[in-house]
Design a protein around this nucleic acid. Structure first.
Lengths: 247, 247
DNA sequence: AGAGTGAGTGAACAGCGTTAGCTAACGCCG
DNA sequence: CGGCGTTAGCTAACGCTGTTCACTCACTCT
């Protein structure tokens, strides 16, 4: 999807190279799921595809770059998953679609622990890097976030839900939200942005806690709590459609 | 605090050993902050205290156990920090204390990135381990959670806030919450437990996203958003006290 | 005083990311 | 078709990691 180059382009060598790069990414993906984020070693990837480790340096300048490419691939895969769930909703009302995407997010996370850990855990570049690295991972991450943002906007535009007026927000928060809004394609009331962030925080928090095991102190099976949270969020957004999960 | 043994106890050797263990833990802590979670190497710890790496195996059976001990220490330190913030609130109304603890949590997280990453990131044992390991880290983690749980209970007992009735909860969720409630010292309505979890999810989600950099796509400075979230949560809990941060 | 225990050591193993230097095959151009 | 430059891949090596083994030395207890 992001690498949508027709296979007939470029010289023979360039095609072979592109194939190898693709194979490396697929193999890395496979090693990730079988060995976990900690076992994602260059040598393991090379071994898996019958290469020596230094050979990979012909294709990626360092392990970090390879991992970043993998992160981008995973974000894309996750985005595809969300969009598929969104588009499968009949009738296509934005509210139901938003809930479907949220459930798809949790489903993907719980069935792809290693991948989720790589994307959203602290192992990513997140902990320390101060400036916003404009790599492919960042780009793919934006696409992922955009899926939820677009749905949220549609929900609001179709049927506005109660939102704090600009005056109710702290001046500091207004400033932050305005700066963000300026980077977005469509302008929405600042209150909508704050509600979107709030909802996203709840979804992220819930799923992260479940996958990282920080909910086991209370719940053996977090799904009912997840559904409860979704219901609360949905009611805050004025979503009145059938909220029962598709199961 | 957790290791409250008087210094006069045990034989000479036992005291020396306890001192060394303590020194190892302190050194590990120091290495963690200077080199990050990835740089927390046995050899680095040993080097820092003029030892060879294998010497540490006299005190900890593996690096994993040392890290677990460190996690427990950090949980204790964080709990102390929260309790100090809680106890500094005058007058000591539970609502204001809960807010103070939440702010102290964020403050500790943002000023202790490496430590927070070790406690709450995916690098911990959380991603894979299926069963609940009853190590010292788990115990210290429970103490940490207990600070918030106790405050929440006090807030409710002093002035009950609106809470879903048992009948409004899914049977599955009721079951989960009852199982949890059975492990707790005091029994509270299931609705309170669900609201507590919901609030904790929001706090955890907000702080995790900020520290792990998953909020930079929107906010350069997440503090105003954090305060906004706290205000929302507080109003849900019927907390009407002065909500302004102490700054 | 002699035995035993335990702390600490260096050497070693397997694995990691990464670099350097080499070989051999490939594609292109005259 | 012959030669040349590019490039994929290799091995060897460096420094790092966690961990084990065999050993020494000092301290403790009988």
């Amino acid at each position: 999807m992001a690498d949508g180059a027709s296979p007939e382009i470029g010289t023979r060598r360039e095609r072979a190279r592109a194939d190898t790069v693709r194979e490396i990414r697929e193999t890395a993906r496979r090693v990730l799921v079988t060995s976990g984020p900690e076992g994602l070693a260059l040598r393991a990837i090379a071994r898996e595809m019958g290469l020596s480790a230094p050979a990979l340096y012909r294709y990626f300048p360092s392990r970090e770059d390879l991992v970043e490419q993998l992160v981008a691939d995973l974000y894309d895969e996750l985005s595809d998953h969300l969009e598929a769930a969104r588009d499968a909703v009949r009738p296509p009302r934005p509210g139901a679609q938003l809930l479907a995407a949220a459930r798809a997010f949790r489903h993907w996370a719980t069935t792809h622990h290693a991948e989720f850990g790589l994307l959203f855990g602290s192992a990513a570049q997140g902990v320390v890097s101060g400036d916003v690295a404009e790599g492919p991972a960042e780009l793919a991450g934006r696409r992922f976030g955009g899926v939820f943002a677009a749905l949220m906007a549609q929900v609001y535009l179709e049927q506005p839900f109660p939102v704090p007026a600009d005056g109710e927000l702290t001046p500091e928060l207004q400033e932050q939200l305005e700066a963000w809004c300026a980077k977005l394609p469509v302008a929405l009331p600042l209150g909508v942005m704050s509600v979107f962030l709030s909802c996203w925080i709840r979804l992220y928090g819930m799923v992260c806690m479940e996958v990282f095991g920080h909910l086991r102190f209370a719940l053996a099976d977090p799904e009912p709590m997840f559904e409860s949270e979704m219901r609360r969020v949905a009611s805050e957004l004025g979503i009145v459609e059938d909220c029962s999960p598709p199961s």
